[in-house]
Design a protein around this nucleic acid. Structure first.
Lengths: 206, 206
DNA sequence: CCATAATTGTGTCACATAGACACCATAGGA
DNA sequence: TCCTATGGTGTCTATGTGACACAATTATGG
């Protein structure tokens, strides 16, 4: 019978300074002591996989209330020097504002740009790349983009999110036309003062 | 530490008689005795997940040499009355011709139309539906469609595959234009006698 | 041998979608 | 009040997609 161990790892993504970042913790224990790694850990016996992902995220990073989706399950041999470990990977999206207070109680968690990762423990680099690819693909046929923004946002902010995820700059007029045409956004009557000309705030619609 | 059991289940799909079918086995043991279920079983200690899926498929159905891709990992509590079981589900695609000899040594495996499933064991119905949805989505931005056909095929046969997966009929001229325009198919110099006017055979290109 | 039936195989038009592209409006700060 | 940074807007072209009908070919059966 199977004596495998099951863990969950979470690729938590957000936009900081117009770039896509991932939250990494610093490992204290062996193996890969002092290496950066994804938050995660063993699934408890009476705990659903999603619940484990949420719990680990909260315990190790203090972050809560995120959009969470299963990514892929990594089960190759020798992923973990301690033995046979099967990892169900998740990715999570959160607006950066929401992490500012939360992140404080997790001293060893820090954000890194996804395109400038440090050396990671285990096969975590592969997992981060897989998550990045997934969200890049889902950006234009789902609404995941909105999960990286607060409830109200300007269209320029939404464009920044898309550009950060895709890693390329987009034409402003074409972008706005496409978003408006999809009907997934609706204008509010509020305006954000930006230091220059204020911008209209929108919200995700339905 | 986690005492979870890890299994793999495989949703093997093929086209029979212009309809998408899934291969089910009949359970002999409890729980769900005599119910239909997906082929699958426990992952061995020194065995990668993909390898386990391939092995179970061969052992329980005699089918080999299929296109295989991980689908999703199901880990809710109480999925299995025997205890806590996490199942890594795969889906596999195979041309029906290829299963004709193979299927013989697995007496209790049989094909069912995906839209007329019998009552299934565990949460296997959900898994089949999930697989169906996945392949439906991937049909037009990947080449999975070809995995349901032998190396050489007519464009009408390819259209039948698409229609079976999508569950709707397609316009012949539009379909052919789209396929040809994608450049993913190239004509051979062979023709299939169809009983009526012979059809040109194509092969998947690159 | 001829008539019939089944299947292959082909083109146009209308509409929607997407990329390229430039300028004025507005508000804050110097 | 001037400057500057950002917000906000429309057209043209190319490409992709859905709707739509008929002639060519071959096997079969009378």
């Amino acid at each position: 019978m199977s004596k495998l161990l099951v863990t969950v790892d979470v690729v938590l993504l957000t936009i900081i300074d117009r770039r896509l970042h991932v939250l990494l913790i610093q490992r204290l224990a062996k193996p890969f002591e002092n290496r950066h790694a994804l938050p995660g850990g063993f699934v408890q016996n009476e705990e659903a996989l999603d619940a484990a992902a949420i719990r680990e995220l909260r315990e190790e990073t203090g972050v809560d209330q995120v959009y969470l989706e299963q990514l892929y399950t990594f089960g190759d041999l020798n992923r973990d020097p301690r033995g046979r470990v099967v990892t169900v990977a998740y990715y999570a999206l959160v607006p950066h504002e929401q992490t500012l207070q939360a992140g404080t109680d997790a001293s060893d968690a820090a954000w890194f740009p996804v395109d400038q990762l440090p050396v990671l423990a285990f096969d975590h680099r592969k997992i981060v790349e897989y998550a990045h690819q997934r969200i890049r693909n889902k950006l234009d046929y789902t609404n995941v983009g909105f999960e990286l923004l607060p409830g109200k946002f300007t269209l320029s902010e939404l464009q920044v999110v898309h550009e950060a995820v895709l890693g390329e700059s987009l034409d402003k007029r074409n972008f706005r036309r496409k978003i408006i045409l999809k009907g997934i956004v609706k204008p509010t009557k509020e305006w954000r003062p930006t230091g220059r000309k204020p911008a209209q705030l929108y919200r995700f619609s339905e």
